[in-house]
Amino acid sequence: MIQQVENPVLEVHDLTVSYDKKPVLWGIDLSVPKGAIAGIVGPNGAGKSTLIKSIMGLTALSSGYVKIFDQELNEVRQRVSYVPQRESVDWDFPASVFDVVLMGRYSKIGLFKRPRKADTEAALFALKQVGMDKFKDRQISQLSGGQQQRVFLARALTQQADIYFMDEPFAGVDAATEKAIIQILKKLSEDGKTVIVVHHDLQSVSTYFDWVIMLNLRLVASGPTDQIFTSELLEETYGGKLTLLSEVGELMKKGQYPSRDKQ
């Protein structure tokens, strides 16, 4: 079931990506409404990260197009923020927490210019939002996985974008960080920003996301969580991984799922 929306903030049309002539994403057609917190779920190798990378222009498309705010990415880059996978960088790099967070401002600062007061203030504010202001001068190699993820999130927040793409922000972080991150995401959504997150943990899908995109090379489903997140569609997405599915089924029976409405 693929639900298209009117006036989407993100529109992906007939997107196909292939590595070495082998498709890794096939004919993706989806749209996401403004203010959504959307989770992209699917088994390993389903193309979840590839979908985000191709939206961000980091992977060449074999066909199709992506529109953000009904425009090409290059027209709206200042309004788009991206949080890569934490493992994608070398955390032994000689930089401080503050250095990394300030990078979110570089494209706003522009060539030849140095960061101004407004930029350093934005970076400090973002650090405070993620609860890392005490660590601003710390070398990034001395951070835990959760703290690294908070730094990446703070860097994205300094961009003050209208849509955020995050690649597995909850992977390998502690419970406190996970809670802090989801609170920030909900705050962003309340402010009318859209957040699109690659997610692994099926158990938290219904509490975290109000929109779900189910992916397995092709798009299985895309729509509001309470309509989409069903055992049939999960089975279609994950194929024969029955143990996992039965666990999810159990959770659903216990009614631990659409609890976002209750909060």
Binding site: M56, G57, R77
Partner: peptide, 20 residues
């Protein structure tokens, strides 16, 4: 003059590309 661009593209090239 381009220290910050070298710094950014060395640390995190995909974030650099994503921000233009």
């Amino acid at each position: 003059p381009f220290y910050k661009e070298f710094f950014l593209t060395t640390f995190d090239p995909s974030f650099a590309i994503a921000t233009g």
